[in-house]
Design a binder for these strands. Structure first.
Lengths: 243, 243
DNA sequence: GCAAAAGTGTTGTCTTTACACCCATGG
DNA sequence: CCATGGGTGTAAAGACAACACTTTTGC
């Protein structure tokens, strides 16, 4: 490391940005907030904010998550660091390095941003990547480099549910095998065989723990309820069908 | 995002740290440099340095890599972002956020640090985690939180060679199947069956391309030479034996 | 010839897939 | 009764592990 000479190195602002994903109505959705001030005023962006002087990065991410959604890292949601973005031109105001975090959460009541529900929404990830749109700013590209960050977060989620039990983070505390399967189908954008899926997830030790209860909230024959087991790594992994 | 108010947020120093891994003499080794000034003066640390005003993070990592080792990101080496470390107490001088990068490189001539070979060395990763040692500072823990960063980098390398073709980044431009197998054995710390390994890597399309040449540099029957193929993801993945 | 490393063949076992079939509920 | 989703059985195809065996070099 070079000698310490603060004057030789300009200060950076450090922020956290959040890719908050959930599954609603059989679609993978991301949380976006409307920007209230320039630059990119009125455009949609990922939630985020500055890291405070006494905070670790993960603390800052958890704080921003609570502020923007009311979601606590408890309640089954999963928070992990995603990647860091530091292009010198990524923010026109000054040099900002953003440490992006990924949150996987169960479907929530309507999000709020500072209490203002109109300035926060869940949007299917496909629409957030779409270029043009009817209403101005509704389908405009995300602010800053947030489309890239979102794409990286979605890709991380897609690959991580293959070999870890994180898909359960998208589910409520108790869920059925069918509900878990619909999570995989929404995140991967594929159809899975319900019979083989059932055998596989119930046969992987530590993935699912039966609670004893059943539900018919999906219709049809009553389904067993499960909660997430202790295992974090799936062996063998869930296999994403060929493209 | 909160309103822009620089005075409310203290400046951060942003650095890049490098986990540079290679395989030498059948062991996974990491590059470490001796610190010339406090804090942790005389202790071993990961190479790294401050990000400059006009640099992207990956540019800063490539520059530091070239300065510390003479290695260019060409020449088959692989560079990727690893993770970012921002504990408020990680550097006693000031608030430093470090964006760690992972480099996988073929075995090199002796590294240099500013031309001084005594202050840079390859060390088997096991010895860098060892707590005590004969010579003071030789086996002392790494400076700052670098032991943690190194552990994360090693774990990333171990898992990534399972499902990607990155193990070839540890090899010279032309290599034999046996040499590639010894990379896997060193990184994973296991013994692999040479017969099954050969069948598997040569049967995975896009992983290896025969160059037509052969070599006997490992002794025994001449072995075909290969170079890395275009595939980056291995399907099916290489399987790490059970522990 | 002998040691060493490269490479091929074979066999039993496990995993995955595709799909036939039955089960239990709501309406 | 029927539609809907839940769940089990089974057989063909494929992947993997273990290991016998042959090939081609250096010494």
């Amino acid at each position: 490391m070079s000698p310490y000479d603060p004057s030789a190195f300009p200060p950076f602002a450090v922020t956290v940005d959040l890719v908050v994903l959930t599954v609603r109505e059989h679609a993978l959705c991301a949380l976006s907030v409307r920007r209230g001030e320039p630059p990119y005023q009125g455009r949609w962006a990922l939630p985020g904010g500055f890291v405070r002087a006494d905070e670790d990065l993960s603390q800052a991410a958890a704080r921003e998550l609570a502020e923007e959604t009311g979601l606590r890292a408890q309640s089954g949601a999963h928070l992990e660091q995603l990647a860091t973005y530091g292009d010198p031109q990524r923010d026109p105001r000054m040099r900002v390095v953003s440490v992006a975090h990924l949150v996987l959460a169960p479907d929530l009541p309507a999000p709020r941003a500072g209490g203002d529900a109109r300035s926060a929404r869940w949007a299917p990830v496909g629409t957030l990547f779409a270029e043009g749109g009817q209403e101005p700013a509704e389908a405009a590209p995300l602010a800053f480099d947030h489309a890239r960050i979102l794409a990286d977060g979605v890709e991380r989620a897609r690959s991580k549910i293959e070999y870890s039990s994180l898909a359960t983070a998208f589910c409520p505390p108790e869920f059925t095998v069918g509900e878990l399967r619909r999570v995989y189908e929404a995140v991967w954008g594929v159809a899975l065989d319900p019979r083989n899926f059932h055998r596989k997830v119930t046969g992987t030790v530590g993935f699912l723990v039966p609670t004893g209860g059943t539900t018919t909230r999906q219709g049809g024959r009553p389904a067993q309820l499960f909660r997430a087991g202790g295992a974090t790594l799936l062996n063998p992994p869930m296999l994403r069908p060929e493209v």
